[in-house]
Design a protein around this nucleic acid. Structure first.
Length: 421
DNA sequence: TCTGGGGTCCTAGGACCC
DNA sequence: TCTGGGGTCCTAGGACCC
């Protein structure tokens, strides 16, 4: 059996945790740059604040309804997430952390006397007691069914267990296809056109037909709904290294000059390479993009994207920042109000097994760059992120995001004055 | 005026191989 | 009039997830 544990309104719950005065208040949390609503406490949901709403459109409503608004504080959320996951690991040796606020547990051979419901309730209560974050627990014979159970747990007191054929049929019948994990907007429309409206109908649909007309993904989902395990359990073994690393941000204000834009690109490249080194990988491809805002009808839009393939895979900050800056320059088109920029690293290999190029002479200085990066990581590890940066990232650059409603760093330290390199 | 930031997997089609 | 039958690998784009 699988159990899916999911934190309720996670970011909003985190903000409430250190503000007992807000225990019963309506709280919303905004995305970076205070752009959209990305989390709502149950009280805020009841007051009708929609998920994903642009903040400027609901700002007045929030004031009128006395809803407390927070900018997102990811350092806080990650720290609390770690505490939740550590608690879960006491309960099941096999925990697959699926996102910042949810994890799958795998239960083997639970004796019939030990009922799943009791175990789920215990997990829910323990996390709340030890960390203070409310969670819901869904239990089922496949991951897809544990997700489905978790979805219904919100209406059944925080715990929902699917462990008999009768319960399985019941929950499948009352679940519309659009609520199934893996069935998004486009697929639900297509399934409904095919007269498949409930999870029950999908689980009974003709499999080869699903595979032919939709995809293997839908076919697997149908099997999982019927109770057949299809999703591989690789993730339970060890945490897998990422296959792609993206660092991007919207600007606090529109950017029109190349210098500022390049500073942001260098910043993202440095951060991406830091993440790359942290997971012990090298990358063989680096892409840069920047674009104007997507929503303003009255201005010209442009989107720039460029990629460099690296003959010798690498992970050093200096080199990757350089390459990113070079691409950014080639892509530059003046005269637009740019809204967002980012860097993507792909094509990874483990740093221990660097594949050298047969024809390219080995750069005798590449080792120095790696040493420099190591030093950079050590200094930033000790004095806080951003203590030592590349000059090309700029100082107090004009593109950084606004966070007008940030909560304090309750559990995490913020570094002191930046040292400039 | 102001609309997030990450990820994964699959597919189709093209280039190439024998 | 007639023009084989297999394969692999790579990439861009789309769908999905949180």
């Amino acid at each position: 059996m699988y159990a899916l544990v999911d934190c309720n309104s996670f970011y909003a719950s985190c903000e409430k945790l250190f503000r007992p005065d807000l225990k019963h208040a309506a709280v919303v949390v905004l995305s970076n740059n205070d752009g959209c609503v990305i989390a709502r406490s149950s009280e805020a949901k009841k007051l009708g604040i929609p998920m994903g709403a642009p903040y400027f459109k609901v700002r007045e409503e929030c004031v009128a309804k006395q809803i407390k608004v927070f900018s997102s504080n990811y350092a806080l959320y990650q720290d609390l997430s770690n505490r939740v996951m550590a608690t879960l690991e006491e309960y099941a040796p096999e925990v697959d952390i699926y996102s910042i606020d949810e994890a799958f547990l795998r239960w083997f051979d639970m004796p019939p006397s030990h009922d799943h419901r009791r175990a789920a309730i215990q997990i829910k209560n323990t996390v709340y007691r030890q960390v203070g974050v409310p969670v819901g627990v869904g239990v089922g014979p496949t991951r897809t069914l544990s997700k489905l159970a978790n979805h219904h747990a919100k209406k059944t007191g925080g715990v929902c267990v699917i462990d008999t054929p009768e319960l399985l049929e019941h929950y499948l019948r009352i679940t519309p296809v659009s609520d199934i994990w893996g069935i998004g907007r486009k697929l639900s429309i297509r399934l409904e056109q095919m007269n498949i409206r409930s999870a029950w109908e999908l689980s009974r649909a003709h499999r080869p037909w699903l595979k032919k007309h939709l995809s293997v993904v839908v076919e697997r989902t149908a099997r999982e709904l019927a109770g057949e395990v299809c999703l591989v359990d690789l993730d339970f073994e060890e945490s897998q290294p990422k296959k792609q690393i993206v660092c991007s941000r919207s600007f606090g204000a529109r950017v029109t000059d190349f210098i500022t834009l390049r500073e942001s690109i260098c910043f993202h490249a440095a951060r991406a390479s830091e993440k790359l080194r942290k997971q012990g990988s090298l990358c063989a491809q680096l892409s840069v993009f920047y674009r104007t805002g997507r929503f303003n009808q009255n201005e010209q839009h442009i989107s720039r994207f460029g990629t460099a393939k690296l003959i010798n895979p690498r992970s050093d900050s200096a080199g990757l920042v350089d390459i990113a800056a070079e691409i950014a320059e080639k892509l530059w088109v003046p005269g637009y109000r740019y809204a967002k920029a980012g860097v993507t690293l792909t094509d990874f290999c483990p740093s221990g097994s660097r594949q050298l190029d047969l024809l390219e002479p080995l750069n005798p200085r590449s080792g120095e760059f790696d040493e420099l990066s190591k030093l950079l990581d050590q200094i930033n590890g000790r004095y806080g992120r951003g203590a030592l940066v590349h000059g090309s990232q700029g100082i107090n650059s004009g593109w950084h995001m606004s966070r007008d409603h940030a909560s304090p760093a309750y559990t995490t330290q913020i570094s002191g004055l930046p040292v400039v390199g």
